[in-house]
């Protein structure tokens, strides 16, 4: 049982694949590709990302036909982990290794009701035993072959905003003028529980921040920093590395 600590820092402007247009000539494709890449770089703000990882007992052979569920923590009064963020991480893992069965969060919460509501969800691995005293709950877990339960705790918040923009409509047309900027920060931690052994086997955290801009001279041009998306990709990559036998 060797811990695998690592720290990855990344400062990058996000890249997106540029889709080729069928039927265009090679030169046109080249120009379109360059334009697309330039637009992508210009229209996306930069994001700082820091990922910390501490994992144990990695399943080197993969998880076979067992399943994984990823859930958000929602018991804190001042924030709750976004459902779409959990969905994003699940999709990231499914895309990375189609052999991993990642259960849909809402379906899982509904099929296990009322044991994973904010009030009743287990906070420690010790609470799993209490859950399994309910025979129907134990049977359901066996049925879905749950091997790992991953809890994501955190949220994305707006850290600052400034600037102003004025828009107007007249007989000759409409337009906006001004400049706005705002910052976002994401702070998430994933805790991995080995459900069979009822122990915690890892923690991965991702902190990202970025500044978005919206200049407007007639037309507003949003330059959005994909702060939450980068946090999703960072956590998703690390979880995929942990769970998949292919990577």
């Amino acid at each position: 049982m060797t811990p695998r600590p690592s720290k990855v820092s990344d400062r990058s402007c996000d890249r997106e694949n540029f889709r080729w247009y069928h039927g265009a000539s090679c030169t046109a494709r080249g120009v379109l590709s360059l334009l697309g890449a330039a637009l992508t770089i210009v229209l996306q703000g930069c994001v700082n990302a820091t990922v910390d990882e501490m994992t144990f007992m990695e399943p080197t052979e993969g998880i076979g036909d067992a399943s994984v569920v990823i859930m958000g923590r929602r018991h804190a009064p001042d924030y709750e982990t976004e459902f779409d963020f959990i969905e994003c991480i699940g999709d990231h893992i499914r895309r990375g290794d189609a052999s991993i069965t990642v259960l849909h969060e809402l379906e899982f919460i509904n099929m296990m009701y009322p044991w994973f509501e904010p009030r009743t969800a287990p906070l420690r691995t010790d609470d799993i035993d209490k859950l399994l005293t309910q025979q129907r709950v134990a049977d359901r877990f066996s049925e879905i072959k749950l091997e790992y339960m991953i809890w994501i705790d955190g949220s994305t918040v707006e850290t600052n905003s400034s600037g102003s923009m004025t828009c107007g409509v007249g007989p000759g047309g409409a337009g906006c003028f001004g400049f706005g900027t705002w910052g976002n920060a994401s702070d998430y931690e994933a805790t991995i529980w080995d459900f069979t052994d009822e122990i915690e086997v890892g923690r991965i955290s991702a902190n990202t921040s970025g500044q978005s801009y919206m200049p407007a001279v007639v037309v507003p041009i949003p330059i959005i920093a994909p702060v939450q998306g980068t946090a999703c990709d960072s956590l998703g990559d690390q979880l995929l590395k942990y769970l998949s036998a292919k990577l």
């Binding site: 509904n110 009701y113 009322p114 044991w115 309910q134 025979q135 129907r136 709950v137 359901r140």
Partner: peptide, 9 residues
């Protein structure tokens, strides 16, 4: 809303 049946003995 859609309300699930509780999973209990």
């Amino acid at each position: 809303g859609n309300f699930p049946k509780p999973l209990m003995d």
